[in-house]
Amino acid sequence: MRKYILIVFIVLLLCPGLSFGITAREIMAKSQEAFLYPGKDMKIRVEMRLISSSGKVRLRELTMLRKNFGPPGGQQKYFIYFHRPADVKGMTFMVYKYPQRDDDRWLFIPALNMVRRIAARDKTSSFVGSDFTYEDVSGRDIDDDRHDLVKEESVDGRDCFVVKSIPKKQDVNYSYKLSWIDKESFLPLKEEYYDLSGNLYRVFTAEEIKDIQGIPTVTKRRMRNVQSGHQTEVVFKEVSYDIGLTDRLFTERFLKMPPRRWIK
């Protein structure tokens, strides 16, 4: 009998995904860690397809480098190099992301050999014209929202927590978000954003998850604006973690002269 209780206890310990004792905030924090902070650093080659309601496709291809500074939820630096379309090829973009305030962003325009710092709010601006905002790409502070665990449900046969996140301040253009968080990997499998009048507005779906260096990674995702019919499909063509990005990479020097070995 004692042995049986012990086994149950160990099973419970090994399954932090079970709803016993885990709060909605903890789920979202673990999800952010799994989704936006895996590895010490990361390199991905991204293909974005911006698809209009009539089916017209625009393509964006970029290499994104990301390095964590501090624990998950903390500071990160991003370096982005655009391969396509032709009119932005060679442009680079650098973001210092801070947990409690707006990002610092710099853009390099090769035709003028000019670095420009950009005043922008991450919460509502679209990332390169796509259906994703900057905040969708680099994350939102956990404590900017109030999180409630509303139910448990399965998505494509995977058990999920369903968390409702309500912004504490009216600093975004949605009133709340529902997230379906995989109990095992803590990756978001689906998200629904409801506009300020409470109608469904954007839907995120994780369409392909691969194990890369032992890290479950969403390698294909889609954000669909159900009101306008526009959608953006994002495919990670190459992903690698812990490649040893140096701090020095995230400086004006490399913004102007992106190192070939990192952007290839």
Partner: peptide, 8 residues
């Protein structure tokens, strides 16, 4: 300053 989405 970005005053609102896509407007600076």
């Amino acid at each position: 300053r970005q005053l609102w989405e896509d407007f600076t």
